[in-house]
Design a protein around this nucleic acid. Structure first.
Length: 426
RNA sequence: GGAGAGGUGGCAGAGUGGUCGAAUGCGGCGGUCUCGAAAACCGUUAUACCUUCGGGUAUCGAGAGUUCGAAUCUCUCCCUCUCCGCCA
């Protein structure tokens, strides 16, 4: 959510953001509602002020055992008017809030303009030896063929027991998945200073509103109506909302959490696109990085967070590139996003394995997460950031394809040896 | 799932329907005193919204109701605790 003051004072900035992110431009409607709302507030609050004054008079008269019938009758009329104005006000405020929640975040000045993913800018490319050959297409078995050969995953049985898009990890596939997760959590907690959180995988609607999934993307989230709970699409939701409605102590900032969770996404409307194997699934595993910072440090922390995610790929030895997303491809809640894409050599394409965003105060305002600079200062909204560090499903694809040997076996890189009872899949 | 108790300011804890945004204590902040500190004493100490910047309005778990007026009465919901049942 943006500051209503920003919209009042710089409506052009907000309009531009709506257009850039392909969102309905509701700015005029919003400003009109804001005006109407304030007019009603001034009216109803002056009536309430009057009622408070006269109510006191009534109390005095009653104590003095004098008659107050006239004042009581007057105030009955005033109270009726207040009730009716309050109803009007509630309507306006509900409509205003819904619009406010539907306005996307404004992107940072360093974000390039562009209509869609073709406008994204590659800002970095990494391979173990820095050689360009690492990014060439190679012959070999793709991840599905390798999975079948070594019985690592079972998509068919996953579809049988749940639905298409719910993979089952089997044998060494399951062990490898678990190794990824443990390796990443250990790296971020031991080397990068994050505190581990293992959150609930279900949350309420308010949490999804706090991070920006609701109301706009409600159709992408699994819903359990019997208990009014929702399956998390990312650990960002429970972890960011941990501190909703709280004022954080300034000496705790930046507050850094890493969290493993399963992630559930309906992917409504994207059937048939990249659906093979792990490329697009309804349930996958992810280790998330989340930070809460003071506004003036959030962009430095964004760079660090992205590097922390990259470190996973560098230690594993998987070639990747970093993209700076253009405004047209930047998510609804984000002010600036880097994507990390891993190179899947057999598939011959880049796969998004991480997305690292600075939300500035957009989520802080929605979820009401604040901090106080010093004991006497007014609370301010924190900046929130998060990034995948990393999602295992796309990583798995690139991993299997990258480390398969000419003889068809898959070599396990040394950093994972402490986590696995085998050094090759053969 | 059954029975009971309870939710008030950063914390603890009062509060006969009528100056209650709320006593008191602790904590925090500022000051006096001190070489310094402790103690003592004095003062101060919520948030949001509206504003013609004088001020005004709202908030005692949430919502609805009764009333001229609700922290206080009624209803619904949420949460916490205790006991019983079930259970990894």
């Amino acid at each position: 959510m943006l500051d209503i003051k920003l919209i009042r004072e710089n409506p052009e900035v907000v309009r531009a953001a709506c257009h850039a992110k392909h969102t309905d431009d509701a700015v005029d409607q919003l400003l009109e509602l804001d005006r109407a709302r304030r007019a009603i507030i001034q009216n109803v609050e002056s009536l309430k002020s009057k009622r408070n004054t006269v109510t006191e008079e009534i109390a005095k008269l009653k104590r003095a055992k004098e008659n107050a019938d006239r004042q009581i009758a007057d105030m009955k009329a005033v109270s009726d008017e207040i009730a009716s104005l309050d109803d009007h006000l509630r309507e306006k405020e509900l409509a205003l809030e819904l619009l406010m929640l539907s306005i996307p975040n404004v992107t940072h000045a360093s974000v390039p303009h562009g209509a869609d993913a073709t406008g994204n800018v590659e800002v970095k490319r990494w391979s173990p030896n820095g050689e360009a050959t690492a990014f060439e297409k190679r012959e070999g078995l793709d991840h599905l063929a390798l999975a079948e050969k070594y019985q690592l995953f079972d998509f068919k049985r996953g579809a049988k027991i749940a639905a298409a898009g719910f993979p089952v990890y089997m044998g060494r596939g399951a062990q490898l998945e678990r190794a990824f997760i443990n390796f990443m959590l250990d790296l971020h907690t031991r080397s990068h200073g994050y505190t581990e959180v293992l959150p609930p995988f279900f949350v309420n609607a308010q949490s999804l509103r706090g991070t920006g999934q609701f109301p706009k993307f409600a159709d992408q989230v699994y819903h359990m109506p019997a208990d009014e709970l929702y399956a998390i699409p990312t650990a960002e939701v429970p972890v960011t909302n941990l501190y909703a409605e709280e004022v954080l102590p300034v000496d705790k900032l930046p507050l850094m959490h890493t969290a493993f969770s399963a992630c559930f996404r309906r992917e409504a409307g994207s059937y048939g696109k990249d659906t093979r194997g792990f490329l697009r699934v309804h349930e996958f595993n992810k280790v998330e990085l989340v930070k809460f910072t003071m506004p003036e440090y959030s962009y430095d922390e964004h760079e660090k967070l992205t590097s922390d995610a990259e470190r996973v790929l560098e230690l594993l030895g998987i070639p990747y590139r970093r993209l700076l997303l253009c405004d047209g491809d930047t998510g609804f809640s984000s002010a600036k996003t880097y994507d990390l894409e891993v190179w899947a050599p057999v598939e011959g394409k880049w796969l998004e394995a991480s997305s690292c965003s600075n939300f500035e105060d957009f989520q802080g305002r929605r979820a009401n997460i604040r901090f106080r600079r010093d004991p006497k200062a007014k609370p301010e909204f924190v900046h929130t950031l998060n990034g995948s560090g990393l999602a295992t499903s796309r990583l798995m694809v690139a991993f299997l394809e990258t480390f398969q040997q000419p003889d068809g076996t898959v070599r396990i890189p040394e950093v994972l040896h402490p986590y696995l009872p085998f050094t090759h899949i053969a």
